Amino acid sequence: MLDILAITTPIFAIIGLGYLARAGRLIGHEAIQGIGTFVMYFALPALVIRALTQNPLKEVFDPRYLLAYGAGSLAVFALGLALTLGLERKSLATAAIQTLGMSASNSGFIGYPVTAMVLGPPAAMFLALNMLIENLLIIPLALILAELGQQAGNGLRETLRQTGLRLARNPVLIGLVIGILLAATGGPLPAPLAKVIDMLAGAAGPAALFVIGGSLYGLKPRGMVRDMGQIAVGKLILHPLAVLGVFLLLPDVDPLLITAALLFACAPMISVYPLFGQRFGLGDVSAAALMVSTLASFLTISLTLWLIRHGGLFVTP
């Protein structure tokens, strides 16, 4: 168990440092937002570009991983919609946002640092694949349903157009496009540019974890135990189980893929989840769910690492 804690403790120690920095007023909310902007607009895109350009393109885009992880995420999304719409009789907008919290991992800020500690450099390749699934499938699907549920009068066509425009400005997706284009040309990057990308990519993990900790400061559950608990259980338990289930249905799957998929799926929901929730009147619930899921993920990620290792799926490159 000590070897598991050796992986998870540094990750959550940096999250704790971010929280303490805010609690001790060493750094303000605006500064945390600034670091988050740096991670989102510079470090994570550089990380994706480095992953795509350091390996042959055919080795990065594994269709089995995309299929299994995407199908598992969609299964949880469908289950969440059925639960909130059918059993709890909530609105489509509420159901879509709550389901988003269950099925979209914080791959960049928590999933990648944890997986990198376990698997090393291959974690960046899986980050690129997860970013495709989350930014082109799960998040757009949730936002389209939420917009339609609010009946803003825009209609499906306008909703799709606005969602597409937002995605086109997503810095991680821009990094994916740049990385794919560079990898497709096959030529090496100029040494100074490669060094800049490498330095930015190296800052992604610790800076992202620090931002998560600083962002958790001040969040309060405020008595929303049922909805908050439902989202957290869906994200930390159902999502990993669904992803694992799909992978086990596929023949001859590389254990490396299973290990990476499980670690990414065990991460709590995306860090901007409260912003999406606030837009649709669920700011408090989504913020509370993010706080609880992030704290609880220390236990679930540690348990998952223990089960993977003793289940014979653990892979060290």
Rank of each mutant, 00 (worst) to 15 (best):
Leu181His: 07
Leu181Ile: 03
Leu181Met: 02
Leu182Phe: 14
Leu182Val: 12
Leu182Ser: 12
Ala183Phe: 12
Ala183Asp: 01
Ala183Val: 07
Ala184Glu: 02
Ala184Cys: 03
Thr185Ser: 09
Thr185Pro: 05
Thr185Ala: 11
Gly187Leu: 15
Pro188Phe: 11
Pro188Asp: 13
Pro188Gly: 14
Pro188Tyr: 06
Leu189Pro: 04
Leu189Lys: 05
Leu189Asp: 01
Leu189Val: 03
Leu189Arg: 10
Pro190Gly: 10
Pro190Ser: 09
Pro190Ala: 09
Pro190Trp: 12
Ala191Ile: 11
Ala191Asp: 12
Ala191Gln: 15
Ala191Trp: 12
Ala191Lys: 13
Ala191Ser: 13
Pro192Asp: 09
Pro192Arg: 12
Leu193Ile: 09
Leu193Ser: 02
Leu193Glu: 10
Leu193Thr: 06
Ala194Tyr: 03
Lys195Ala: 06
Val196Ile: 13
Val196Leu: 14
Val196Met: 15
Val196Phe: 12
Ile197Ser: 07
Asp198Thr: 06
Asp198Asn: 14
Asp198Glu: 14
Met199Pro: 02
Leu200Phe: 07
Leu200Trp: 00
Leu200Ile: 05
Gly202His: 07
Gly202Ile: 10
Ala203Asp: 09
Ala203Val: 13
Ala203Tyr: 07
Ala203Thr: 14
Ala203Ser: 15
Ala204Glu: 05
Ala204Gln: 14
Ala204Lys: 01
Gly205Lys: 01
Gly205Ala: 15
Gly205Asp: 04
Pro206Asp: 07
Ala207Met: 05
Ala207Ser: 10
Ala208Gln: 02
Ala208Cys: 11
Ala208Lys: 09
Leu209Arg: 06
Leu209Ile: 11
Leu209Gln: 00
Phe210Arg: 04
Phe210Asp: 06
Ile212Asn: 02
Ile212Lys: 11
Ile212Ser: 02
Gly213Asp: 13
Gly214His: 05
Gly214Ile: 01
Gly214Met: 11
Ser215Asn: 09
Leu216Ser: 14
Leu216Gln: 11
Leu216Asn: 02
Leu216Thr: 08
Tyr217Gly: 03
Tyr217His: 15
Gly218Leu: 03
Gly218Pro: 02
Gly218Phe: 04
Gly218Arg: 11
Leu219Asn: 12
Lys220Asp: 07
Pro221Glu: 05
Pro221Ile: 10
Pro221Lys: 09
Arg222Ser: 13
Gly223Ile: 04
Gly223Trp: 01
Gly223Met: 11
Gly223Arg: 12
Gly223Tyr: 08
Met224Leu: 15
Met224Asn: 14
Val225Glu: 10
Val225Leu: 15
Arg226His: 14
Asp227Cys: 05
Gly229Ser: 01
Gly229Tyr: 07
Gly229Val: 11
Gly229Leu: 14
Gln230Trp: 11
Gln230Tyr: 08
Ile231Leu: 11
Ile231Asp: 05
Ile231Arg: 03
Ile231Asn: 04
Ala232His: 01
Ala232Pro: 05
Ala232Leu: 07
Val233Tyr: 07
Val233Cys: 08
Gly234Trp: 03
Gly234His: 05
Gly234Cys: 09
Gly234Pro: 00
Gly234Asn: 08
Lys235Cys: 11
Lys235Tyr: 01
Lys235Ser: 10
Lys235Arg: 09
Leu236Lys: 00
Leu236Arg: 03
Leu236Tyr: 04
Ile237Ala: 15
Ile237Cys: 13
Leu238Gln: 02
Leu238Asn: 02
His239Asp: 00
His239Asn: 03
His239Gln: 01
Pro240Gly: 07
Pro240Asn: 07
Pro240Phe: 09
Leu241Cys: 11
Leu241Phe: 13
